[in-house]
């Protein structure tokens, strides 16, 4: 077990160094994902399997997907396809693939010795949950407020650009109405309002 821990730690350090020295963001993201997986193996060998699962699910699964989305969003344009073709060469997958294969071999070795893995749980998920919703309850509430604030802030920053095209003068033209699909609905309402007024005025006179 200690040799597996040192190997995972070495893979984490090496892949983080490779991440810091890459020039392309996609290559750096590949090495960063391998680094996070190696840190998850370190957590597992330290006796924290719940934290290892959280690391893989949230860090390598959610946050890295956000990074990949943004990196792919920022390279829109005509030269995007050539750029992608020059970035995604099979040669660049070799380094992360070797490191990930080493981690996979470690995981298989750990799964084969089930007794050691089950016995080496230092602090289980039950104690973590009890501590999280016991003395740290105010921290959970603060984290929920932080996440809500981040949600509102990210929505505001992301949706602020949409106000600019609506200020243009073409917002009330026929094309925009037909594109928006509101012409069929609005035609009926206009006519009923006009008919109601034309019915209403003779009654007054």
């Amino acid at each position: 077990m200690p040799s597996l821990f040192y190997m995972a730690a070495a893979i984490a350090v090496f892949s983080t160094l490779m991440m810091l020295t890459r020039l392309n963001a996609v290559h750096a993201l590949l090495y960063l994902i391998v680094s996070l997986l190696a840190v998850a193996v370190v957590f597992y060998s330290l006796g924290a399997p719940f934290i290892a699962a959280l690391e893989i699910i949230i860090y390598a699964g959610a946050i890295m997907v956000l990074f990949v989305f943004v990196v792919m969003l920022l390279n829109l344009g005509e030269r995007a396809t050539e750029l992608e073709r020059s970035w995604v060469r099979p040669r660049m997958y070799v380094g992360p693939a070797i490191l990930a294969a080493l981690l996979l071999a470690e995981m298989v070795i750990m799964l084969l010795q089930t007794h050691v893995a089950a016995h080496s749980i230092a602090v289980g998920p039950k104690e973590v949950g009890t501590a999280l919703y016991g003395p740290y309850l105010i921290g959970v509430e603060l984290a929920s407020m932080l996440l809500l604030g981040a949600l509102v802030g990210a929505y505001h920053l992301g949706a602020g650009k949409r106000e600019a095209p609506s200020e243009g003068s073409h917002a009330d033209t026929y094309e925009s109405r037909t594109v928006a699909g509101g012409d069929l609905i609005r035609a009926g309402t206009d006519r009923t309002v006009g008919a109601a007024q034309s019915d209403f005025h003779p009654d007054v006179h």
Binding site: I58, A62, I63, L66, F67, V70, L73, L74, L146, L147, G149, A150, L151, G153, A154, L157, G158
Partner: peptide, 12 residues
């Protein structure tokens, strides 16, 4: 997670 959401929106 919160920092990455706001930070990537700022980067965009």
């Amino acid at each position: 997670a919160a920092e990455v959401a706001v930070g990537l929106a700022l980067v965009l």
